[in-house]
Amino acid sequence: MLKKKNLPDMDILRALAIIIIVLFHWYLFCCQNKDLAALKAVYYANIGLCLFFFVSAYVLYYNYESLESASDIVNFFRKRAKRIYPLYWVAFIVLIFIIDKYFFANSIIGFLGLQGFFPETYYVNTTYLWFIGIIIIYYLIYPILIRPKSLINKFSMAAAIFLIFSLISINFHVVNVKFFLYYWVFFSGIVLCCLNENYKDFKLDYRKLLIESLVLIAILAVLAWILISQPTLINSFPAYLTLIIQMEYIIAVLIIYFVLNMFIEVINRNYKKFFQSKTYGVISKISYSAYATYLLHDIVGTILLYKILFIFNLPTTLNNLLLIIIGLPLVFIIGYYAQKWEIKIINIILQSLQNLSKKIF
């Protein structure tokens, strides 16, 4: 049974995630040195993606704390498919037409959302839509992840699933590496929600946790710097660097979460009307349309930059300025209305099918 209570912290985190992703993906559009820009954009955009995975898991557990029966699980998968695929297919088909090189194998894997099941050696990864393939795997394993009742058993189940996927990847050379990169970030969303919902007496001290997290991420940053500055160490211990990066992502997300909750506590004490304000209304709309915005932001940027502004042959600086001033607001507006219309259209289609089935049977 879905809970209807609003989660303002998750709204703000989701809005922040999509803003970070769009900004740093569009940073690539505006940069002359694409290689350097790509390194910077990937690093910072990954924080946005981690927030996406974290929020997805948190909200999932909040709404689907338990899936007891087969019908519950089927209903869960049906709702997830309804949420993911229609708009994703629209974005995918548009991408096929605007990207020059897109192989047939890519089309099959991409159309079915199976990018997460295959390493990138199996297909040419030409788009950012790999995210959909990874989140689909997380949704598929979610009923198993939450099956244990106690938190410690949930950790054990999560570790067992991670180990199974690792063995499958090693022995059969399948599963996209990004599944492992964001797995524990996704699971941390489940854990935080579980603590907040099921352990009401367990009060999180956000200030203390923030200080401890900052110290820990500083230590990890030093370790990462030592490994990166010594090529022989990286060659000897590549898995250690990957593990450190994973831990940094988790802690970075938790730091943002702790800071946000401290901010919300201050707002609740001193400015309770904030959550009825126009500012929060804009944040809510960005959050509501985050999925559509993610799917469409690169398409809008590509069309605007290479199909429209390209015609006028403007200086690069002016081109970039127009891209930011016109393009960025346009992305969020298109994302909002695409999400809104998609939901309405799907509901109309489903209602029509239901009415038709009643007439036939």
Score class of each variant (00 low, 15 high):
residue 231 P to K: 02
residue 326 I to S: 04
residue 124 V to T: 15
residue 327 G to Q: 08
residue 65 E to S: 15
residue 169 S to F: 03
residue 332 F to D: 01
residue 224 A to E: 12
residue 82 K to D: 15
residue 73 I to G: 00
residue 225 W to E: 15
residue 347 N to P: 13
residue 56 S to H: 04
residue 166 S to D: 02
residue 12 I to V: 02
residue 170 I to T: 14
residue 29 F to W: 13
residue 298 D to E: 10
residue 137 I to A: 02
residue 77 F to L: 09
residue 36 L to R: 10
residue 336 Y to F: 09
residue 306 Y to T: 13
residue 244 I to A: 01
residue 23 L to N: 04
residue 13 L to K: 03
residue 324 I to S: 00
residue 38 A to E: 14
residue 338 A to I: 03
residue 342 E to L: 13
residue 132 I to W: 00
residue 35 D to V: 14
residue 265 E to R: 03
residue 255 I to C: 06
residue 320 N to Q: 08
residue 3 K to W: 10
residue 261 N to Q: 03
residue 170 I to M: 14
residue 206 Y to T: 07
residue 282 V to F: 12
residue 288 Y to N: 03
residue 178 K to F: 14
residue 91 A to H: 06
residue 96 I to T: 09
residue 102 Y to C: 09
residue 303 I to P: 05
residue 308 I to H: 07
residue 181 L to Y: 14
residue 304 L to M: 10
residue 277 S to P: 05
residue 68 E to V: 09
residue 171 N to C: 12
residue 34 K to I: 12
residue 308 I to R: 06
residue 25 H to K: 02
residue 36 L to E: 15
residue 181 L to W: 14
residue 223 L to N: 10
residue 62 Y to T: 04
residue 352 S to T: 10
residue 256 I to W: 08
residue 179 F to N: 03
residue 24 F to A: 01
residue 126 T to C: 13
residue 178 K to G: 09
residue 166 S to F: 04
residue 15 A to F: 00
residue 10 M to I: 04
residue 236 S to V: 09
residue 74 V to E: 15
residue 293 T to I: 06
residue 169 S to N: 14
residue 162 F to H: 02
residue 262 M to C: 05
residue 14 R to E: 08
residue 131 F to W: 02
residue 175 V to G: 01
residue 274 F to R: 01
residue 351 Q to G: 14
residue 108 I to E: 08
residue 356 L to S: 12
residue 207 R to G: 13
residue 246 Q to F: 07
residue 231 P to G: 04
residue 280 Y to P: 05
residue 314 L to N: 05
residue 49 L to R: 10
residue 349 I to K: 06
residue 129 L to V: 03
residue 66 S to E: 09
residue 98 I to R: 05
